[in-house]
Nucleic acid binder design. Structure first.
Lengths: 350, 350
DNA sequence: CTGTTAGCGCTTTCAG
DNA sequence: CTGAAAGCGCTAACAG
């Protein structure tokens, strides 16, 4: 492997001149610049990443920390990862994948002390996230895909859950649905303060009140089995339900089964909307699901960009943005055809 | 950040002694060892990754190259990635994700020249893969998840497609199915020489002949729409079909629709087995799919281990292994109930 | 506009 | 068993 010295000799200049030419840190006459770059590709020279990083105190490596969550990663997370990696590369950075099973801040502290990465991207952020506290405390650059309760001084990009839930409820309400359920992810994620679960839980309540419809909420583990059980129980308790909003992709097959068991058909007798999901997911089911698609690629891209911005800029320009999910109406939702049994009862009562 | 010199001073030893204590490269008296390690964690010392890498000429970073393929990444690929990252970390390595859109060997050459990574893991390997040729040529360490036609001198781990296809066909044949179709991935992937597509195409032919049943093969793009069209056409052409084997997950919803359109039910009137798939995938569909699950985690793990082995060992110990998919019978396959219409015709003819 | 040189924090000879 | 010192390949003062 040729080194910078080889290039310098071949171009007949000093080693430092090559460095300056490469980094554009200093004006170089067009003529010598030419000679230098000519020498470079005659030799097939590539700057040594580690040496450069050591000398400049910037590795140009960033890390994406992904905890292996209870529900496992899905298409959305996969897209974060690939799009963050793409974005990093486009900006001359490399993206390290750092599997951090827990939210343990100690392992993270060790990691930051190695001088391997210039900054980290966090995902699966909790409202009170120890990792964020740590990073803030030690002043290590980071960005969030997600956000915690205290937003002060953090660069983040997150889904606009409020808008997403509201749009979905309004959509169903406009179709005539008056009794709408929300099937969230698990209670334990809620208790742990996992952002999306806590936020949608609250937003749904607001949204149904604003829309003037009845709403009921349930937590549910991320399995078809749990979906079946939880939703069956829910339907028994509230036979008036004509629509379900869920953020629990993996429970969906169970939900659909529970609906089918009642002899109902989707979307004729029951509407289903999966929020924060993806086209990939939607197209797997029959009928294709109406979803609000998570802006997964944008989240990954922005997560990386926000971090890189901090690393490049001297001013601590933090940025915060909320991205909406896009409602895509497919085959699992439609007008409310069943009158709520409450009405029926009133009629019968008359 | 404390450096090695700080540790040395605090422990009252030479800098180099600290280094030897850390790497175990040289015997150190228990007493000084104690002092050194005490000093280390009093200072919260962590060795600087870049400095260490520069001096030792080994970065302890490896890269996973993942091309964004036509069909997009799925759960299986996601599991490669996470399990490769896990494995790397367990062995003291970091895993860089290198998005390489194409199989362009030039970008790869540049990448290897940067001294950033000690070796690379390739996935989505083609039978004649330019990247492999390049790496072999320049003697850069690599391992494959997949394999090419010429296996000489390559460490790889791949799925045992032959075994997988054979087991699937035998399973269906034992259930009484005599007319079995195989829906592969796209023609263009076949033409490009993408390993899994080419290998299963050949294996299926062998397997049906060995089982003494009729087989027919089709390529299909990775969309439900394409699945629907291709399979409808196939059913029209061969009404005797009672079972389908497919390696095309994304086409499955279309296939099921096509079956339903015929008024057939799965698994009573038609059996469906998805090979090289996953439980995650299977549980999304109704009925849950019979699949052969790809050993995704093992592939990722071994891919990383094979590479790391090469990096650690002085002898070029290459290793090659083929992992079977595991047949998991769920709800989409069962005994053949329909007699082939060929027989019916014979009866009618009598 | 260009050259010289002192590190970056560590590994690894070479010498005791 | 331990120290001293020469780099690894580059960046960034400092000096023209």
């Amino acid at each position: 492997m040729p080194t910078m010295l080889d290039v310098a000799r071949r171009a007949g200049v000093a080693l430092s001149t090559v460095s300056y030419a490469l980094n554009g840190t200093r004006p170089i006459s067009e003529e010598t610049r030419q000679r230098i770059f000519a020498a470079m590709d005659e030799l097939g020279y590539r700057p040594h990443a580690l040496a450069r990083g050591l000398a400049s105190r910037r590795s140009r490596i960033i890390a994406l920390l992904f905890p292996v969550s209870e529900r496992g990663l899905g298409f959305t997370e996969l897209e974060f990862v690939t799009s963050a990696a793409d974005t990093a590369r486009e900006n001359g950075y490399s993206l390290i994948l750092w599997p951090s099973e827990t939210h343990d801040p100690n392992a993270l502290r060790q990691f930051t002390r190695q001088g391997l990465v210039d900054g980290v991207i966090l995902m699966e952020v909790h409202l009170h996230d120890e990792r964020v506290n740590l990073l803030r405390e030690i002043g290590f650059p980071f960005s969030l895909i997600g956000r915690c309760a205290d937003l002060a001084g953090t660069s983040y990009v997150d889904i606009d859950f409020e808008q997403t839930v509201k749009e979905t409820v309004d959509y169903l309400s406009a179709l005539g649905h008056t009794h709408i359920a929300f099937l969230n992810q698990s209670q334990s994620l809620f208790d742990a303060g996992y952002g999306p679960v806590v936020r949608t839980h609250a937003c749904f309540e607001q949204a149904v009140q604003l829309a003037g419809v009845k709403g009921i909420r349930r937590f549910c583990r991320a399995t078809p089995q749990a979906g079946y059980e939880t939703f069956s129980e829910l339907l028994t308790k509230c036979p008036d339900l004509t629509a379900l909003v869920t953020m629990n992709e993996r429970a969906v097959p169970g939900v659909m089964q529970a609906v089918a068991d009642r002899g109902w058909r989707i979307p004729d007798d029951f509407s289903l909307v999966v929020i924060v999901s993806s086209a990939r997911m939607a197209e797997m089911m029959t009928p294709p699901l109406t979803t609000t698609d998570a802006p997964a690629a944008e989240l990954g891209r922005l997560g990386a960009e926000l971090l890189i911005q901090q690393l490049e800029a001297q001013e601590q320009g933090i940025q915060q943005s909320l991205l909406p999910c896009r409602l895509v109406v497919r085959g699992s939702s439609g007008p409310c055809r069943r009158a709520p049994s409450l009405d029926l009862r009133e009629v019968q009562g008359t």
